[in-house]
Design a protein around this nucleic acid. Structure first.
Lengths: 225, 225
DNA sequence: CATTGTGAACTTATTCACAGCC
DNA sequence: GGCTGTGAATAAGTTCACAATG
C-alpha cells in the first residue's frame, strides 16, 4: 500500500453488496460534515464510531473499490469524498424528473438537498390539468401524456414516482419506456422494473413501522442501515 | 403444525435482524394489496415472487415470530395481516410529533399514509414565530421552547425530525429528553440517540445515490431492501 | 506509533430439501 | 398436489488480528 491507487481491486461492481453502497453514501455524508468542521483527515475508526460501525467494516467496504487510505495518517477527507463520488456516480450532474405533484411531490421539488448533491429536477408531470403548465419551485409541470417526449427533449435519466399506489406501476412503466435508468418510488407499493433498470423504494409509513417495532420490543438503537 | 399458534417460537425479539423487520413491513403492505384485490389467501412463493425474495425467505422470516400458515393452503391474508401488525406494534395508534415545518415537514403533515397506518400527527413544532399558532392540515404548530410541555400533554411517543442538518442533533436531544421512544430523522446527518431510544434515518439524496450507483455500474434491480 | 489493507476465523443470513399436513 | 415449518447445507457478511507503512 502506497500512494492511493484506485485502480488496484476495481472488482466487478455487480458483486458489491447493496449494504456496502448504503454505507458508502453514509461515509460520504459524514466526510462532508467533517470537512465543514475544518478537518483535513479522518480515520476508519473515527468514521466508524460516528456512524455505528467497526473500523474494520469501514476499511473492508472501501477495499471493494480500491485503496484510498494512508497508513499512519488515515484518509484525506477531500480525496475520499472525490473517490466515493466517483464510485457512486455522483461526480457529475443527473437530470431527474418527478411524476406526481401532490403534497410529497411539491416537497421533493423544493428539497434543496437534491440540488446540492448534483441532482437537477428538470421536469415534473401531473395528471391534474389545473397544474399542467404551471411552475413550482421553478420546475415546469407537464401532462403525463407528454412524458415520453419531454423526457427525451430534457434528457432525463432518473425518475421520482410520487403518485398514489394505484398509479405507481403504470407511471413506472412509462418512465421505463421513456428510457429512464432508475427510479425512486415513494408510493406504498412494490413496483416491478425490467432488468437493467434500477429501483429504490421509500415508504414513509414503513420507516415508522421500523421504529414502532423497536419501541414495542424495547430494542436498542440500530446503526443507520 | 396445525391451527396457527403464534405462541410457539416467540423468541427474544432483540435477536431479530433488522432486515427481517424491513421485510415484515413489506409483507404487510403486499398482503393489504392482495386483500384489496379480493384474495383470501396467499402463499410464501406468491409473496416472495411479488417482492423479489425466495419462498423459503418468507417462511423463515415469519418463523421468527410463530406459526401463521396452513399447510396446503398458505396464509390467510387477514390472519397474517393481524399477526404482523401485532409484531410491528401497529395494532394500535401511535401519537407522533413533527419538528420542522418546512417543505418536507408540510408534506409529512399532509401525508395520508401515516393516518391510514394508525399514526396520528398530534403536534408540530417550528422555530419560525410566524408559523407558531397556525395550523397546517389540521395540526397545530407550537414553538420549540414548548416542546417538552406539549409532548407531555399530547402524550406523544414518536418524533419526526425534518429540520436542517445543523439543528437535527439538538432537536433530537430535546425529543429524547421529552421521553420519545423513537425518531425518524429526515435531516442529512447522523444523529445519536441514547440506548433504549430507536432511530431510523431517511435521506432522500442518499436514496438517489443508490440508484446512480446502480446505473453508473449497470447493475440489476435490487429487491426492495 | 497510529493506521491502513487483508487473509483467516467467525458469525449471520439465505437457500435447500424434505417430513408432515391439508 | 400444494404448501408450511424447519434442520442441514451453503453463502454472505463481519470482525479479528497482524504484517506493512508513512
Amino acid at each position: 500500500m502506497n500512494s492511493p491507487n484506485p485502480n488496484s481491486p476495481q472488482p466487478d461492481p455487480t458483486s458489491v453488496p447493496p449494504a456496502v453502497v448504503h454505507r458508502l453514501s453514509l461515509y460520504l455524508r459524514e466526510l462532508r460534515h467533517r470537512i465543514a468542521d475544518g478537518n483535513e483527515t479522518t480515520s476508519s475508526s473515527q468514521l466508524g464510531r460516528r456512524l455505528g460501525f467497526t473500523d474494520a467494516q469501514v476499511r473492508k467496504d472501501l477495499a471493494h473499490f480500491g485503496q484510498f487510505g494512508h497508513p499512519g495518517i488515515g484518509y484525506r477527507c477531500n480525496e475520499l469524498v472525490d473517490a466515493i463520488r466517483k464510485i457512486l456516480g455522483t461526480d457529475r450532474e443527473w437530470r431527474v424528473a418527478l411524476v406526481g405533484v401532490g403534497n410529497l411531490g411539491r416537497a421533493l421539488l423544493g428539497y434543496r438537498g437534491f440540488y446540492q448533491q448534483g441532482f437537477r429536477l428538470a421536469a415534473a408531470f401531473d395528471a391534474d390539468p389545473e397544474k399542467v403548465g404551471t411552475k413550482i419551485e421553478g420546475v415546469e409541470i407537464f401532462a403525463i401524456e407528454d412524458l415520453a417526449e419531454v423526457m427525451s427533449t430534457h434528457k432525463i435519466e432518473l425518475g421520482l414516482v410520487a403518485v398514489p399506489a394505484s398509479e405507481a406501476q403504470a407511471v413506472t412503466d412509462q418512465l421505463v419506456a421513456a428510457g429512464v435508468g432508475g427510479i425512486v418510488n415513494f408510493a406504498p407499493v412494490t413496483v416491478t422494473v425490467p432488468e437493467g433498470v434500477s429501483k429504490v423504494g421509500v415508504d414513509l409509513a414503513r420507516e415508522l413501522e421500523q421504529v414502532t417495532f423497536a419501541v414495542a420490543n424495547r430494542q436498542r438503537e440500530q446503526p443507520e442501515t
